[in-house]
Structures are given as structure tokens and as C-alpha cells.
Design a protein around this nucleic acid. Structure first.
Length: 270
DNA sequence: ACAGTAACCTGTTTGC
DNA sequence: TGCAAACAGGTTACTG
């Protein structure tokens, strides 16, 4: 569930609570995430001060005096900063801080990542091929229109490709295509210059609005204070198979593209 | 280079 | 009611 707005919500929640604090201990209860958490993590992090918390794509970047911690929430990850207390099920990693609070990483499905980086971040294999941030100037009509040229996969799969543009996952890809009036099954290379303009505009607007209300909560996403996001109340098509389109009343259709559920209005999206 | 698919893992929902 | 199957957010790695 964590797409860009959820990761940004998490970043904004934890940054003021951990920036400037020193890590006094690291507890790894379950190292088996997307990639194994290195056994020496405690040694590398302890006594280091947290300089900043930033975001690139869906990755959180915790900048330390020396090195970085690269965190991905995967499908089910969340982070809270809380007073020291007994760990619950799936609370895999704790960063114990100098104010005696704990930054706690929770991830039932363990598709997330907790990675130590001691080299230049921009060269990191997980970051180096990522496309532009959707809210940055570099993601514009010209860029998107160029990116679809010659591409034969569907426009929805194209938008979810993190090498094209980052942060757009299944939910927001579905929603952006609805708001743009574009059928998700359209071949990418057949998207016109005008449609590229509309898509860029809708993606930016959608993500801004979702961030403003704290992201989408589907099952158990919650921010640093444990509060849910409120964007799920505004979804137009995602998860609404067989319900009627909010705009024209036609039944929302559910299909599968690339093993992901796609929802769209066959009337509004052409 | 590109496109499609399987895999990683667990919890919840759906269907028989 | 019980149990099995289907399904869920993301990304990499492999295949053709």
C-alpha cells in the first residue's frame, strides 16, 4: 500500500521526531526482509547522529554523520516513533534513540528493506536508474510523451514503471487514468501529446491531494503517530469493481494487467 | 532493449 | 463452521 504519498506522510511524521537524535542501540528481531538485514547494522549505527530524513521515490533516506540508511516499506511496512515498549508481532527493527524513544519498523509481509549504505547514494543500484519524481519539474508533458514513444506495453504498466516515473503504484495509476479519461489498456505509444499533458497534470494533482490528507489507508497503513490516511474516501475507481462510476453511473470494470488489478470506467475512459 | 511472468511472505477476505 | 483458495500494496530476477 505505501505508494509515494504514504511514504511522504511517513517521512513528514518521523523527521521532526528523530532528526538531531543519536542512535544508542539497534535491535533487529527479524533480519529476513526483501534482502537480509546485515548483522553489523548495530555496530554501524550506534552512536551516530541522525542528520536528516529525506525521500527518493518510495525510499526513505536517513542521513547519518557517516553513511545512510535506505528504507523501503514494501507492501505492508510502517514506521512509528514511540516511547520504549514491548514489541508486537512483526515489529522487526528498533532504532533506540538518545531521548529514550524508539523508531520502530513494522512489516508483516516483509517485502520491505532496511539497507546500510556507506558509499555515494546516487550510485546505489536501487536508486541509480529511477525516473524523475512526479512532483518535480522534470516530470512534464514533453518527458512523458517522449517516454511512451515506441513502447508497446499498456499505459498503466508504463506509469507504474519506476524507471519512467517514481512513486506511482497500483492505486494511483488506476486513479490517475480515470481522472485523465484514458483506458488503462491503451498501448503506451498510442498516447497523444495532449493526453500526455493531461496525464502529467492529473498525476501531480492526485499525488498532491493524497499527500495533503495523509495518504491512502487500505488495511493497516498508519503514519508516525499511528493515525490512518484519509484518501481512501476519495478513490474513484480503485477497489470499486461492479459499483457505479461516480461520474456517469456505468459499472466499474475490474481486469488484470501484469498480475495487478486494474479498475476503470469503460464509459469515461477511452 | 523490451515485455511478460514468477517469486519473495503473511494476513484477511471470499467461496464452497 | 471450517478449510482452502484467492487476493493484497512493490520490486527484482528470470525468461523468451
Amino acid at each position: 500500500m505505501p505508494e509515494l504519498p504514504e511514504v511522504e506522510t511517513t517521512r513528514r511524521g518521523i523527521a521532526p521526531l528523530i532528526e538531531g537524535k543519536t542512535i544508542t542501540n539497534v535491535v533487529v528481531r527479524q533480519p529476513r526482509l526483501r534482502w537480509p538485514v546485515i548483522p553489523t547494522l548495530n555496530k554501524y549505527l550506534t552512536n551516530q547522529k541522525i542528520i536528516s530524513v529525506t525521500r527518493r521515490a518510495k525510499y526513505l533516506i536517513i542521513e547519518l554523520e557517516e553513511g545512510y540508511l535506505l528504507i523501503h516499506l514494501g507492501m505492508s511496512g510502517s514506521i512509528k516513533v514511540i516511547p520504549k515498549q514491548k514489541a508486537q508481532k512483526h515489529d522487526h527493527i528498533d532504532l533506540v534513540l538518545s531521548d529514550n524513544k524508539v523508531m520502530r519498523y513494522h512489516d508483516p509481509r516483509r517485502f520491505g528493506a532496511f539497507i546500510w549504505v556507506d558509499t555515494a547514494l546516487s550510485n546505489h543500484p536501487l536508486l541509480k536508474d529511477l525516473g524523475p519524481e512526479p512532483l518535480a519539474k522534470g516530470f512534464n508533458q514533453r518527458y512523458l510523451f517522449k517516454s511512451v514513444m515506441g513502447r508497446k506495453r499498456s499505459i498503466k504498466q508504463h506509469l507504474m514503471d519506476q524507471n519512467i516515473v517514481v512513486g506511482v503504484g497500483n492505486i494511483y495509476a488506476n486513479e490517475a487514468l480515470f481522472l485523465s479519461g484514458i483506458d488503462p489498456q491503451r498501448i503506451a505509444q498510442n498516447i497523444s501529446a495532449d493526453e500526455s499533458q493531461i496525464l502529467v497534470k492529473q498525476i501531480k494533482q492526485l499525488l498532491r491531494k493524497a499527500i495533503a490528507v495523509g495518504g491512502t489507508t487500505l488495511r493497516d497503513f498508519s503514519n508516525a503517530q499511528g493515525k490512518p490516511g484519509y484518501f481512501s474516501q476519495r478513490l474513484q475507481v480503485y477497489g470499486r469493481a461492479d459499483e457505479s462510476c461516480h461520474f456517469c453511473g456505468t459499472q466499474i470494470k475490474r481486469i488484470v494487467q501484469g498480475q495487478r488489478a486494474t479498475f476503470f470506467c469503460p464509459q469515461c475512459q477511452q
